[in-house]
Structures are given as C-alpha cells and as structure tokens.
Simulated scan of single mutants.
Amino acid sequence: MVGWQRLSHPRIAAWAAAALPVAEAALAASREPWRCGDTWFVGVDALPNDPDGSVNGTAFPWEVLGLAPEPLHPAQLSVIRPGYPQPSPDESPAAFAFRRDRDAAHVDGLIADSAKRRRIVEPHGWIIGLPLNASSADAAPLVVWEGSHRIMQAALHAALAPHPRDRWAEVDITDAYVSARKRCFETCRRIELPAVPGEATLLHRLTLHGVAPWGAKATAPEPGRIIAYFRPQLARVADWIERP
C-alpha cells in the first residue's frame, strides 16, 4: 500500500453535485477570515452535512468508497484561490517557507501547543477528500509522500511504546515526528494528486500530505478550488497508531 487511493463513481459525482451549492452558501455566509494572505479558507466543520454524510437528501457514497458507515462530522471545506500561499502575520518566515517549499507537509491529528510541541490530540480512522468543483490540475492540488505512513507509524509507535498506552495522548512526540518527516522527504516519492468532481482521494491516516502552491496558469471557478474533507475520529490513540 502506498498510503493513498483514488476512487471514481457516478455516486461520488452525485454527492459532490449536491454538496456544491450547500458549500457555496456556507462560504458566502461564513465570517471566518481567509489565511495565507487571503488565499486559503480553512473551513473546519463548514459543510452542514447530516451525520450520515448525506447532503440535501443525497446519500454519502459509503459503499463505492469501500468504507463502513459511521457518524460523520460536518466536512471541512478547504478552499484555495489564486496566489496561494502568501505570507501572513500569523506565520513566521520559516513557517511560510515550509508552506511554500514543502507544501506545509503534515500528518493530521498532531496538534502543537504554544511551545510548538506536538501531541496526538485528534486521532482519526481515515482521511477522504472529495472535490466539489472542477479546477485545473495545478490549482493547488493535494500532495502526498508515497509510503510515508509506514515510516510515520513505526517512528511514532517507537516513541510511544515506553509509556502507558492509556496516556499516549499526553506524550510529546515532536522529535520523533520531525525526524520521521525528514526521512519521508528523503526517501518517499512526492506526488501531486489533482482530482475532479466524481473522484475521491482516500488517505491512510498517517500519510504525510500537504497542498502544492497555486500554479502560474492554474484556473478554478469562484470562489476557488473547493475540496470537502472528512476525518472521523477514533476513541483511542492506540487504535490510531496500531491499526494497519
């Protein structure tokens, strides 16, 4: 397994078509500020889908995605527009350079505190991205490092193993994570994964991933390239780190 899978089906397309106007309305009504110099709408929990994933009566395509139905949070609406990324006051020059040159590569679920130390705060079972509108392949596509989930899983498990399993959420895994991320950059193939409505990109929960900069000739409709993301949470960090 390389840590990602692309799926395509008319039922995925039907869900995306139903979700698009709902997403556009949510964006228009939102007061959330755009980040990265007004080029990125983070949109956590912004899509008002039902707990079963349906939108406007259109069922979430569980079966064709190969996923077992489970309660879903409101989807993130990640919206990127021309010029991404730009410097912003809430990012240091080093953080901006990492976003621009390394696609802001990260593993979801690791949350940094005020001292920039990371812990596993939001363990989740899987990540899926569903494009809602058609944009060009160079319009800030999703980026993954193939096979990175194996490196991350081994490194983080080694860092957690000396501690009681019921306290793994409290363990500072920053050093192990940064070292593993560096190894992924050095040994894993970086690939861009553009997608269109009707397709879905399923990621292993520990896959290192990010967003490429907006291409010089990239195009997308207003308000920008929109992808809905789901990351259903797990009850225990042990499940996040030990499951295949």
Rank of each mutant, 00 (worst) to 15 (best):
A105F: 13
A139Y: 01
W240Y: 15
P123L: 12
V237E: 06
S78K: 14
P164W: 05
W126V: 09
L67F: 13
P221G: 09
P48H: 12
S88N: 03
D113Y: 08
Q86K: 12
A95M: 06
R205K: 02
V22L: 11
R150V: 08
P51E: 12
I127L: 11
R231L: 05
V22E: 10
Q76R: 14
A159L: 04
A25M: 05
A158I: 02
W168F: 01
D45Y: 11
A25D: 06
E170K: 05
A216T: 15
L47A: 09
C184S: 12
W4A: 06
L65T: 06
A18I: 07
P93N: 10
L208F: 14
L110S: 05
A23M: 03
P232V: 14
W126S: 09
V64K: 05
V237T: 04
R100V: 00
G210M: 12
L7R: 15
D175Q: 12
L130N: 13
R225D: 02
L47Q: 03
I151V: 15
E91Q: 13
D45R: 15
N49V: 12
A139C: 00
V64F: 02
P197W: 09
H124V: 00
A14V: 06
A134D: 15
G224R: 07
V144K: 10
L47T: 02
E192G: 11
P48T: 02
I173G: 00
K217Y: 12
S114D: 13
V79D: 09
